[in-house]
Design a protein around this nucleic acid. Structure first.
Length: 432
RNA sequence: GUGAAUGUAGCUCAGUCGGUUAGAGCGCCGGUCUGUGGCACCGGAGGCCGGGGGUUCGAGUCCCCUCAUUCACCCCA
C-alpha cells in the first residue's frame, strides 16, 4: 500500500519551524492592533458565486485555480482563494458598515489549484487588512505602511515597493480605448495570451513577460497619462504621504494586478530572495467591490501578504535569532524521586513563567542533562536518593554551571523554589 | 495545463562498467565517566534504494509506466 502523504502543494508546519510561524503571527496581531484593526474570521469555504462575482470572471483565479466542489445538496462551494470577497460578504451580512468606517484584518489559509513551485502552494497563508469606508489617500498610505513595518520589525530589507494607479470607473473607458487603439494595429505581433487579453482585459497585457510582447510595452500608453483629475489628485496625495512617512517606492506604470476589483491605487512589494514568485505582498484600492457585492457604495483599500513568502525572505535576509535559554528541567533519578517531583512540576507549571519540563523515562543523570540542554532550559533541578533524604534539590545553571541547593518544596508550596529559580535564571550569561 | 531536473537511513548525500552482505556525515540510543550537559573516542539501532512492470544468470544502477518533490512557464501571496 502506498504511503499517505500530504496532498500536493500542501505542507506540514512542524517544530522547530512552527516557532517562527508563531512569532510572525504574534507580531501580526500586535501590529494590526497598533493600527487599530480588528480581527475577522470567515468560513474556509463560500458559495462559488461569491468569488465569481467578487474576484472577477476573467481572472485566472476564477478561470482555473479554484477548488470548487458540490456538497450533498448540490450547492457549489469553493475553498477560499483569497480573503477580500469573503470579508466583504461578512461585512454586508452583518451590516457592519452601518456604524461607519471599518478596519478589519485576517490571517489564515487560502487555496488555489496551481502547479506548486518556489513560494507557491495550493494551500498558502495570508495576512491582510481591509480598510472600508475611507476614500482618503491616508487610508492607502496606512495600508502600505503597515506591512512594511512588519517587514522592518523582522529585519527584512532589500525590498522593492512598486506603486501605480489604475484609475476609476470615470477614466477607465477612455484609457481602455487608448490601449485598444495602440494594441489593435499590432495585435498580430503579440503573444497568443495577449491577443486573448486584448478584448477581455487589455490592461493585463501591460505586465506580460512574454518576449513577443515586451518590445511593444514600453511605448504603450500608461494610465498615469489618462487619469481623471480626481484620480490624479488622489495619486499625488498618496505619494506625498508616503514621502512624509519615509517609505521609499518606485512608480511602475505597468503594474496592474490580477484581480478585477482594483481601482486607483495598486501596489506590490517584491524581494529578490524569492525566485520567480517575487511578490511578498500586494494590494490596492477597490472602491467598487462593496457595491458590486450588493452593499452601499463604499470606498475601500487593503493588502494581502503571503506568510510562506515572508518566512522565506526572512530566512534569507532577516535575522532569524536563536531563542534564549529559558525555563527549567527537573531531573529525577529513580522512581521515588520522579514520584516526589510530580507535584513540584505541577506547581511550577501553575506559578512559574517559563517552560518546566521533566523526563519521565529512566535515563541517567548525564542523559537527562543532555535532554535539558537540547530543550533549551536555563536551569536543571536535580533530585536523586541522596537529595530526597536530605530534602533538597540541586539547582544547576546550565549556562554558568553554577549550582546551589534549595529545600525540596513540600506541602508548603514552591515559593522558595521560585525565588531561587528567579535569582539563578537572571544571572548574566557569560559571553562565549 | 506545459517543460526540465531529482527520488537511496530521521536529515544532507555517496554508491564506479549492472556483480554477491547498500555506505558516509549529522542526528538518535548506549558506553568510556556507578550521579553532572555541550567536546573527544568507541559501539549500537535505524533501509521494500518512491511504487509497478520489463531486460538480464544477476538491477539501487539499464528501459517503460506511474506517483511525488523541486525549479521554470502561465499567473499570483
Amino acid at each position: 500500500m502506498d504511503k499517505i502523504t500530504a496532498p500536493r502543494g500542501t505542507q506540514d508546519v512542524i517544530p522547530p519551524e512552527s516557532r517562527r510561524w508563531h512569532e510572525l503571527e504574534s507580531a501580526i496581531h500586535d501590529l494590526a492592533g497598533r493600527f487599530a484593526y480588528s480581527e475577522i474570521r470567515t468560513p474556509t469555504f463560500e458559495a462559488t458565486e461569491l468569488y465569481v462575482r467578487g474576484v472577477g470572471e476573467t481572472t485566472d483565479i476564477v478561470e482555473k485555480e479554484m477548488y470548487t466542489f458540490l456538497d450533498r445538496k448540490g450547492r457549489s462551494l469553493t475553498l477560499r482563494p483569497e480573503w477580500t470577497a469573503g470579508v466583504v460578504r461578512a461585512v454586508l451580512e452583518h451590516n457592519l458598515l452601518a456604524q461607519g468606517p471599518l478596519k478589519l484584518y485576517y490571517i489564515g489559509s487560502i487555496f488555489r489549484y496551481e502547479r506548486p513551485q518556489k513560494g507557491r502552494y495550493r494551500q498558502a497563508h495570508q495576512f491582510g487588512v481591509e480598510c472600508l469606508g475611507y476614500a482618503d489617500a491616508a487610508a492607502d498610505a496606512e495600508c502600505i505602511q503597515l506591512p512594511i513595518e512588519l517587514l522592518t520589525r523582522f529585519g527584512i530589507g532589500g525590498l522593492r515597493v512598486e506603486l501605480n494607479s489604475i484609475g476609476c470607473a470615470a477614466c477607465r473607458p477612455a484609457y481602455r480605448d487608448a490601449l485598444l487603439d495602440y494594441f489593435r494595429p499590432i495585435a498580430g505581433q503579440l503573444s497568443g495570451d495577449s491577443q486573448r487579453r486584448l478584448e477581455r482585459n487589455p490592461m493585463r497585457i501591460l505586465d506580460s513577460k512574454d518576449l513577443k510582447d515586451k518590445p511593444h510595452l514600453a511605448a504603450a500608453p500608461t494610465y498615469l497619462e489618462h487619469l481623471c483629475d480626481d484620480c490624479a489628485e488622489h495619486f499625488a496625495t498618496l505619494r506625498g504621504h508616503l514621502d512624509a512617512i519615509g517609505i521609499r517606492y518606485a512608480v511602475n506604470p505597468r503594474l496592474v494586478r490580477g484581480l478585477d476589483y482594483y481601482t486607483r491605487t495598486v501596489f506590490e512589494v517584491h524581494s529578490d530572495a524569492l525566485g520567480a514568485q517575487s511578490t511578498i505582498l500586494g494590494g490596492g484600492r477597490y472602491d467598487g467591490l462593496v457595491e458590486q457585492l450588493g452593499g452601499p457604495p463604499t470606498p475601500a483599500v487593503g493588502f494581502a501578504m503571503g506568510l510562506e513568502r515572508f518566512l522565506m525572505v526572512q530566512e534569507q535576509l532577516g535575522t532569524v535569532t536563536a531563542p534564549a535559554r529559558r525555563g527549567i528541567q527537573l531531573v529525577a533519578l529513580g522512581q521515588a524521586a520522579r514520584d516526589r517531583l510530580v507535584p513540584v512540576l505541577a506547581g511550577l507549571r501553575r506559578a512559574y513563567d517559563g517552560p518546566a519540563e521533566m523526563d519521565y523515562g529512566d535515563r541517567k543523570l548525564g542523559a537527562q542533562l543532555k535532554l535539558a540542554d537540547r530543550n533549551g532550559a536555563r536551569l536543571a533541578a536535580i533530585c536523586g536518593d541522596a537529595e530526597l533524604e536530605r530534602g533538597i534539590l540541586i539547582l544547576r545553571d546550565l549556562e554558568t554551571k553554577q549550582q546551589r541547593e534549595v529545600p525540596l518544596p513540600g506541602s508548603t508550596g514552591i515559593g522558595d523554589l521560585l525565588t531561587a529559580i528567579g535569582e539563578m535564571a537572571s544571572a548574566p550569561v557569560p559571553v562565549s
